[in-house]
């Protein structure tokens, strides 16, 4: 098996703010832990970076069962941010990050601006964490439960508060597709100091159990992910790429190398794979090989040359 970075003639490295990754392929938050589980059957180093599950201030037990439903081309989930909370994370999980064979991006979730700022600042400078992603798709308890990322001002407030306290690593704002126009949110995040954007998070969805005449998920609604949502993701990345100069990590339904190329050409600098790991744990290897083949086919030497290629309105820096 040839890893994505093994081809000497090609430069697969990308830059997200001050962060340089050896290849543009990232494991998405909530789908991969630290990689140890999938490491039992494959080489996690195929990923340029691994994004950890979002961490909140307090421990959270998450939602009731069932939390999942396999749907056509996708997966509906309502995990409810189950996790140990920041104190346990720092004490028990952070020390294990040195063993991860890829760069590690931490993820923070919160229910208030203050929570985001506190948790993110406690992660700043922790050895092994190269960037902090903000899962701003959570409900804001200070604004009657409205989702931060659906509102430009709330998104900006979170990013600004975090940037004021996180000084050592780049901050990535992860946006929701549950908006009719992503450009104002993307611009607000950029203006507030975000070093990069991640999009998309899961698409809100629901399934009804017809036999029992009630919602299938215990949480009623959930987030749809997987190839079913890919066109939505590509669209939002395309739109955001016309609105901001900062790099974009594109995701949503990436399963194959061609899917990744769609995102890169629409304007993404890097891409993430989440749900596809649940079918093909070797997806990052296949994606890397296809990207390399595409570069050779086009006589490009750097993956950065693909970014925004298909998008005439691309506002970022052309390689």
């Amino acid at each position: 098996m040839m890893g994505a970075g093994d081809d000497d003639a090609l430069d697969l490295s990308v830059e997200l703010g001050s962060l340089r990754l050896r290849n543009p392929i990232i494991a998405a938050s909530g789908c991969y832990n630290r990689g140890a589980e999938f490491g039992r059957i494959m080489d996690v180093a195929a990923y340029g970076a691994v994004t950890l599950k979002s961490v909140t201030r307090e421990p959270r037990l998450g939602n009731e069962m069932p939390r999942l439903l396999s749907t056509p081309g996708g997966l509906l989930n309502a995990i409810g941010l189950q996790g140990p909370g920041i104190a346990y994370f720092l004490e028990h999980e952070a020390p294990k990050l040195a063993a991860v064979p890829s760069a590690v991006i931490a993820s923070v979730a919160g229910f208030s601006v203050a929570e985001f700022a506190e948790v993110a600042s406690r992660m700043d400078g922790i050895p092994g964490i190269v960037a902090i992603e903000l899962d701003v798709s959570c409900p804001n308890v200070d604004a009657e439960g409205a989702c931060f990322a659906e509102d430009p001002a709330s998104t900006a407030a979170v990013v600004e508060a975090v940037k004021a306290r996180v000084t050592k690593v780049p901050v990535i704002a992860k946006l929701t597709p549950n908006v009719s126009d992503i450009k104002p949110v993307a611009r607000a995040a950029e203006a507030a100091g975000a070093d990069a954007l991640s999009l998309i998070n899961s698409l809100r969805g629901m399934s009804v159990d017809v036999d029992r005449a009630r919602p299938w998920l215990a949480n009623r609604s959930g987030g749809l992910t997987g190839p079913a949502i890919r066109p939505v993701g590509v669209y939002h990345v395309w739109e955001a790429a016309t609105a901001v100069k900062i790099p974009i990590i594109g995701m949503g339904g990436i399963e194959t190398g061609r899917d990744a190329l769609e995102y890169l050409m629409a304007g993404a600098t890097a891409i993430s794979i989440g749900t596809a790991n649940f079918r093909d744990p070797l997806a990052p290897l296949h994606v890397g090989e296809t990207i390399a083949a595409e570069l050779r086919k086009r006589s490009f030497t750097r993956v950065r040359s693909l970014t925004g290629m298909a998008n005439p309105g691309f506002a970022g820096a052309r390689a």
């Binding site: 909530g30 789908c31 589980e37 998450g62 069932p66 999942l68 989930n77 909370g85 649940f278």
Partner: peptide, 30 residues
């Protein structure tokens, strides 16, 4: 339970277990 990843990374398949059981994923200072 309904599974997502089958590998232990998605937290979609959990069952409630007595606190402190060796199989439980404990959050001691919850």
């Amino acid at each position: 339970e309904t599974f997502g990843c089958s590998m232990g990374t998605c937290w979609g398949c959990v069952v409630p277990i007595r606190r402190g059981s060796p199989q439980a994923v404990g959050y001691p200072h919850a």
